[in-house]
Design a protein around this nucleic acid. Sequence first.
DNA 1: TAAATTAGCACCGGTTTGGTGCTCTTTCAA
DNA 2: TTGAAAGAGCACCAAACCGGTGCTAATTTA
Lengths: 142, 142
Amino acid sequence: MMRLTRRTEYGLMALAWLARAGGRFHSVREITENLDVPRRLLAEILKDLSQAGLVEAVRGPGGGYRLREDPGRLTLGRIVNVLEGPTIFAECYQGDCDLSPRCTIKRGIGEVARRLEAVLEDFTLEEVVHGPAGAPAPSPSS
Amino acid sequence: MMRLTRRTEYGLMALAWLARAGGRFHSVREITENLDVPRRLLAEILKDLSQAGLVEAVRGPGGGYRLREDPGRLTLGRIVNVLEGPTIFAECYQGDCDLSPRCTIKRGIGEVARRLEAVLEDFTLEEVVHGPAGAPAPSPSS
DNA sequence: TAAATTAGCACCGGTTTGGTGCTCTTTCAA
DNA sequence: TTGAAAGAGCACCAAACCGGTGCTAATTTA
Ligand code: SF4
Ligand code: SF4
């Protein structure tokens, strides 16, 4: 209910870390050593982000992941969309709901969904990294 | 993930119906006959709404439920809060999360959560009933 | 070749969710 | 005072979802 899954939070942490680390490719091992999240799980998450084109992947020694876009251009909406699927607030807004014909709140709910989505689309990874009003974030210990 | 549960949607439909029906008390039977949602389940939901003080309940013949407040004063935020619990978007925002100390996105996420909550708090039951810009809602066939 | 790394996929245990059954209590009206 | 119409309470169930892991490829570099 209206709560991010762990997957998404781990993914966001990794993306935020990558945003600060920048530059070269960083392996899952390196990331998890800094973030202390379950390694195998984060690997799965980053794979998804890679398939969605949000990060770039390179295999083999020296390989790893790298942001494909500018953190200021990557919206929270897109990230959540990849990690949790497209349905926000109500099914009928994107896909289709079986009780859609009989549903009396559909219209109103659609409006709410749009507003919520707008909020998510308004935040960028950069803002998530830096926190509200440029609060100092701990520098990566790489 | 970011999607309302069925419970909440059923609850909203019932509340919306009650808002339009208004006046006297309406039994679960009467409501479900108009809305076509699982009877026993809606009973459970309305019980919760009653305990939370959003609706008024009277037992016995002629009894049922009735809105306790003006639909224009009842926010979507409060309803969702009752039906799905208080955690919006992230645990650390209200309760506490075990990885809160090590979490790097906490601050940014908190800001997002506030914005999302504000949207929910901005919509009232009345707006859900009437839809965007006063779209005509089908009148209850009572 | 050997090692480092991502990709793919199946699996598992625990929780949540949608939904139902059954009994008890309250209230009204005949 | 009795019976029926309601809600209240609570236990229960099956299916879906979620966090997390194991194992085996495929790819790349040295
Ligand atoms: S049609 Fe109604 S019940 Fe179905 S997803 Fe939309 S709002 Fe929810
Ligand atoms: S501390 Fe981090 S991981 Fe925990 S709920 Fe808050 S944002 Fe999510």
